[in-house]
Amino acid sequence: MSFQSLLPASGGALDRFFARLLGGLVWASLALMGLVFLASLLVWLAVMVVVSLVSSLLTGRPAAMTLLWRRYREMARQRWPQRPAASTTPRADAAEATGASAPTTVQDVAWRDVPAEDDARR
């Protein structure tokens, strides 16, 4: 909604200036409210991190950040999201999706994942 539509159409340059000024002030106040909300969320997050760390010292249990970090590392080690076991060519993928091909395992060597050296030793 434009504040210029609230003013009479026959207004002069001064009326248009004040309408633009009022519109700018409204948008600036909305942006400021958003920034205050974001700042309050960040403060709340920092407080909860400190509470979690202090409670972990008192109880001996791992902190929430520690558990989240362990879970993240576990998922990263599993290389998520997993790719399909046999990587097929795009043409074979399209043929399978439409049902136009016989059930074969057409593979393209260039599309396969080559395991790292440490994975090959296991």
Rank of each mutant, 00 (worst) to 15 (best):
A100D: 07
D113Q: 15
A39S: 13
P90Q: 04
L35H: 07
F37R: 06
P8K: 09
L38G: 04
Q107R: 10
M33D: 07
P103W: 07
S55P: 09
F17D: 15
A19G: 12
S87E: 06
R121P: 03
A28G: 07
R20C: 06
A100P: 00
L68V: 15
F3I: 00
R71H: 09
W69Y: 10
G60F: 02
A9M: 04
L30V: 12
L45G: 04
D15P: 01
E74A: 10
P115M: 11
M33E: 14
P84D: 12
V26W: 05
T98D: 03
L7P: 00
G11Q: 03
V47R: 02
R83Y: 08
T66K: 14
A120M: 15
G99Y: 01
V106N: 02
Q107P: 00
L32H: 14
S52C: 09
L6D: 00
A13F: 02
A100C: 02
F3A: 00
L68S: 13
T66W: 10
D108T: 01
V47K: 04
L35D: 07
R83N: 12
D15T: 11
L53A: 10
L38P: 01
W69K: 10
V26T: 11
L25F: 10
P84I: 11
T88E: 05
S52R: 04
R73A: 12
P103V: 09
V49L: 10
L21S: 10
M75P: 00
G24F: 08
P8I: 06
S87L: 14
A100T: 09
V54R: 05
S40N: 13
S87G: 09
S40A: 15
Q78D: 11
W80D: 07
S5I: 00
Q78C: 05
W27A: 12
R83C: 04
L57T: 02
L21H: 08
V43P: 02
S56C: 08
T66L: 09
A46E: 11
G23K: 01
V54M: 05
E96F: 03
L67F: 11
A46N: 07
R121A: 15
G11S: 09
L35G: 14
G24E: 08
A102Q: 07
G34H: 09
L45C: 04
L21W: 11
A100F: 02
A94K: 04
R112V: 08
L6G: 00
R73W: 05
A9H: 01
L68G: 06
W111F: 15
V51D: 14
L21F: 12
A9W: 02
V54I: 13
V49M: 05
